[in-house]
Write a protein that binds this DNA or RNA. Structure first.
Lengths: 194, 194
DNA sequence: GTCTATAAGAGGATAGAC
DNA sequence: GTCTATCCTCTTATAGAC
């Protein structure tokens, strides 16, 4: 019962974080969305920051599942795996399921780095992706000009790329078309290829 | 006198918006930073949203100046002009001078679209950049696979690219190196080029 | 664990004197 | 136009009954 209730809370938080961002999301909204009193929320989570951390943990667990499902494809190259995971990230964001947190909020940052589960998941995801990047560079599929660190950050940043929202707001393109375009700008760049 | 005072206000707002974002910036902070009373601020600007709009107008004017200085280079190609303006955008952001606004805040959005000066500047910048994009595609310098609209949004999004901040936070790279890397990921992509 | 009610404080905006 | 002092709303968080 408790597990189910908390899962419902995290689902609401996840959606509201994706829709309005951390600052604009209020705890009252979360309580109303879940259908319980605000005081009850605080019996499950100590603070608004803890709610956000729980949402981040869940999306990171989903990311790790996606990474592992890609690892299961023995025939796929490292580059293909990176593309698949990046595509998943774009799809999640376009579906309104990617929580967005301000990177400069200090109280939020404090709560996050104090959360061992969250930190461990970030490390795990970074290491798994990092290995693929090094492999893809060795394969000649990803440019050797850029440090793996730059590649990693660039891929992570797709989770909050505003271009998806801009294109969706025009209402003129399918979600699949938008994802394909943004994936192309990320991997192939804007400059023409011979 | 009034012009100088308001210019000082906009400078403070611009820096605080770049540093903390719209939600985290308080009007009290702005007043303290300028060195005047909060009530005096409201004699110059009607609301917090109006302060943000003024900061956006100023950065757009700077952008337009940069665009026009590029137009003056008769020998430069459209692609080279796009690269130069994008580089300028990255440099401004890395210098902590690029105001960042939440794209989903409704009261802010209402104030912005009601501001004719702001809207006209956005249109002007979009049209100037848009012409270069079409030209660069005709020149074969930018990929014809992507609609100009997608190119435009992708370039605009560099103004709030979090990768710059991530790389700067490591403290291991010069600003110039960071700008070069991000410019390369944007124009050349992550995939290796033959 | 859930509720109602409320504390505590931050922050946007204004009144009114000078 | 600048100031001090204040209003008022919104929001996080908690008290205490059941």
């Amino acid at each position: 019962m408790l597990r189910v209730r908390e899962d419902a809370i995290v689902s609401s938080v996840n959606r509201l974080l994706a829709e309005k961002g951390f600052d604009a999301m209020t705890v009252d909204e979360v309580a109303a969305d879940v259908g319980i009193a605000k005081a009850s929320l605080y019996k499950h989570f100590a603070s608004k920051e803890a709610l956000a951390a729980a949402a981040m943990v869940r999306v990171l667990e989903r990311a790790l599942q996606t990474i592992e499902s890609q690892s299961a494809h023995a025939e796929a190259s490292a580059f293909e795996r990176l593309r698949a995971v990046t595509r998943w990230t774009l799809e999640v964001q376009l579906a309104g399921e990617m929580p967005s947190l301000p990177s400069q909020n200090s109280s939020l940052r404090t709560t996050l780095i104090a959360d061992k589960v969250y930190v461990d998941l970030v490390m795990e995801v970074s290491e798994r992706i990092g290995e693929w990047i090094v492999q893809a560079q060795a394969d000649g599929a990803i440019t050797p000009k850029l440090p793996p660190e730059v590649i990693l950050y660039t891929l992570f940043a797709r989770a909050c790329d505003p271009v998806l929202g801009f294109l969706k707001a025009t209402g003129q393109h399918s979600d699949e078309q938008i994802v394909d375009w943004v994936l192309s700008t990320c991997l192939d760049g804007l400059a023409a290829r011979p």
